[in-house]
């Protein structure tokens, strides 16, 4: 993921705060006009909104792998797989943030991502678990580091219903 422009907006912070059950008025300053507006600790995850290629968002004019007339718009109907299963089967195993300076509404970030380690583990019910690490650096408009995020994703070799 590379994000060229991630504007930190008070209204976006308010929506995020609502979604996570955070009622501290500081996060609702879009309505009061108070300053500064802090961002919640995991807010940079919402940079996905500004990634034009983000895979877990439907794209206008393209087939989506979630359900519509059928259980998956890209699997050709019915259970059993296709692209949708592959995309949907990755799970989030770990997430780590290091905070270098406070994140507030009005800042504009860039996000640059690099791959970290890759490793494998035997699953509890057999089948390989494949782990991969992604590191994202968020910089402000002056090029100063604001937050470093490290994400670990895991993919299963076999689908859940075939394991049991």
């Amino acid at each position: 993921m590379a994000v060229e422009r991630f504007p930190i907006e008070a209204g976006h912070i308010m929506m995020f705060a609502r979604a996570i059950g955070e009622d501290d008025p500081a996060y609702y300053a879009a309505m009061s006009g108070d300053q500064p507006v802090p961002a919640p600790p995991t807010f940079v995850q919402a940079s996905a909104q500004y990634d034009p290629d983000y895979i877990l968002r439907p794209k206008i004019g393209q087939k989506w792998f979630g359900s519509g007339r059928t259980e998956s718009g890209t699997a050709g109907g019915g259970s059993g797989g296709g692209e949708g299963k592959a995309i949907g089967s990755g799970l989030h195993a770990e997430q780590h943030f290091t905070y270098h300076q406070p994140l507030r509404a009005g800042m504009v970030l860039t996000a640059t991502t690099r791959d970290g380690d890759r490793w494998e583990k035997e699953g509890r019910r057999g089948g390989k678990l494949m782990f991969g690490e992604t590191i994202t650096d968020y910089h402000d408009a002056n090029g100063e580091l604001v937050i470093t995020a490290r994400s670990v994703g895991v993919r299963t070799e076999r689908a859940v219903e075939q394991e049991g």
Binding site: R18, A19, Q45, Q49, L56, P58, G88
Partner: peptide, 11 residues
């Protein structure tokens, strides 16, 4: 709500 705010619409 979280899907909408974060942008992660994984079905």
């Amino acid at each position: 709500q979280y899907a909408g705010a974060s942008g992660d619409y994984n079905p």
